[in-house]
Design a protein around this nucleic acid. Sequence first.
DNA 1: TTGTAAGCGTTATCAT
DNA 2: ATGATAACGCTTACAA
Lengths: 339, 339
Amino acid sequence: MGKITMADVAKKAGVSKSTVSQFLNKRYEYMREDTRKRIEAAIEELHYQPNYLARSLKQKRTSTVGIIVANIMHRFSTEVSRSIEDFFNKHDIHTIVCNADNDPEKEKKYIEMLRAKQVDGLIIFPTGENFDLYKRMMKEGYPIVFMDRKVPDLIAPSVVSNNIEATKTTIEHFMENGHKQIAIATEPLTISTRVERQEGYKKALQDNGIEIRQPFMISANIKKIKKELEELFALDDPPSAILAGNDLVFLEVLEFAKEHKLKVGKDFALAVFDNIPFAHLVHPPVTTIAQPSYHMGEKASELLLKQINKEEIENHELTFPCELIIRDSSKELNNNTVI
Amino acid sequence: MGKITMADVAKKAGVSKSTVSQFLNKRYEYMREDTRKRIEAAIEELHYQPNYLARSLKQKRTSTVGIIVANIMHRFSTEVSRSIEDFFNKHDIHTIVCNADNDPEKEKKYIEMLRAKQVDGLIIFPTGENFDLYKRMMKEGYPIVFMDRKVPDLIAPSVVSNNIEATKTTIEHFMENGHKQIAIATEPLTISTRVERQEGYKKALQDNGIEIRQPFMISANIKKIKKELEELFALDDPPSAILAGNDLVFLEVLEFAKEHKLKVGKDFALAVFDNIPFAHLVHPPVTTIAQPSYHMGEKASELLLKQINKEEIENHELTFPCELIIRDSSKELNNNTVI
DNA sequence: TTGTAAGCGTTATCAT
DNA sequence: ATGATAACGCTTACAA
């Protein structure tokens, strides 16, 4: 085991623990060349590895931050996490990723666990259900940044995308391609992101004088999406276009289509939030709404790091624009198609 | 900050630190009901959170294990990590995932970092390049399990899949469907997994009296795969079937096909190692070789936990069988197709 | 049933 | 230039 401690190195090198500590922290200024060499040699020989636990305990910093993602299965979460990791890597800060699985209890448990481990700050994709906990952490001045979702009534550093506008643009793009019967499918409206996407949808219809109809707005658990779609398509006037609220919903839509022998681009048009790695590779290629995940992660990291370093932070809610990447799936219906 | 310490709780409750410690560790046996209540109240009121760092330092256990994946972008890595997390969750052990990006330097850095953090054990998807380090850890008796890849000349607890047989089966499946010109594309042959898959490929050809030809065995960096495929398909007798060595290679094959207006199932047959979440949703549905990622993760976790608990472990190399999931993409060529 | 005190492996302050 | 010593917040004998 990592039995070798600083004391062993000190003894071997014939110096005191403090000197070894100096060495490890690169405070060579007042150190004689030869003692430095001796310490170096001793460390090498003993394969000494410093114990961060002890160091962190003493320093009251772990040089570690935590990320609590809502659901690791989303491409967006992975991309953002990766970006955060890259950022902190440059600053010699470690990152621990936890998956709350959209479960407030799990979220709470992970927040407590990470704080017990004394991580220096937290980036959270909030479930929104642990309001008091969020609030208390903020009051304590604990560094924290919210990602992707806004927490109602909580003024806090957060990084989100412009869901309303992005959705509105997409729906209007459908309209420009002749679609009037447009549906939207999201997971349940428990978090701001989904609410806003539905809001953008409604706004687009209103602004264009199209009636808003309940059955055209699906918001259901991922496992119930297909059933809802069945009901939707059983209507007298089924939709000619669907916006899938995220990548997992998208897969459900594809499965639904397959099971019912409906063809994307022929029987209904389709667009989807999030990056789909194979979107451009299928027929028809799929229109996507890309969130700038890398930049969002970077900015969130920056906001967190500033708090950790006790710097003031300016902005309290940063909104990033999405990019609508138009491909064939969302255009006018035709027969030249086969997903 | 987490300024509140055990001493504060003790003072508030009018007891000593040790009593609080007893309480926290649920040793109520000799504790009077009312002192328990008082401590409970004090903790609640102060929002006390124990400091794991201090506890771990004292106990010499962190109740945390590390996973070092080779490349987090592979579906297989995610699945295995998830499985490991689930397992250790049940045992109240935390999991930290690091991504070595197939870079031996990064791998080394992460191993050292995690050990410095005193994690109780490591599950590694080894790059294979840090032989001495692996060896030293094993000699120290540090709990470790290798995943997915074998390290040459190292006898160590490892969990792998039967790449040779699985590949052979797949290639023979191609043959049964009339294919004779069969190619395989993998990333460079730097790790056992890829070597074995190529080996299985060769074996299948040999056993069936088909000549092995260099140009039909692509092993190149992911970014060069497409170029190699171009050369391959420029041959007088291009392949009629391709096995993609993993999910990322698969995407490259699809891109290549798209760029050259080749259709899967019509111009060439296709099968791929790893789970592809949308494999069954495209046309033609894609044949996949599924590794039992969940079980592999579970078994690796079990082997690690046993080592952590100083139990002897029986087996030194566990091989799991893959499942060939046959879909249309790998059958006889026809015109009814369109990926 | 609860308290005292030593110690886990570092760092930091102050001597020397 | 280097060393003694006291923390950091917890656990754990052992004492009371």
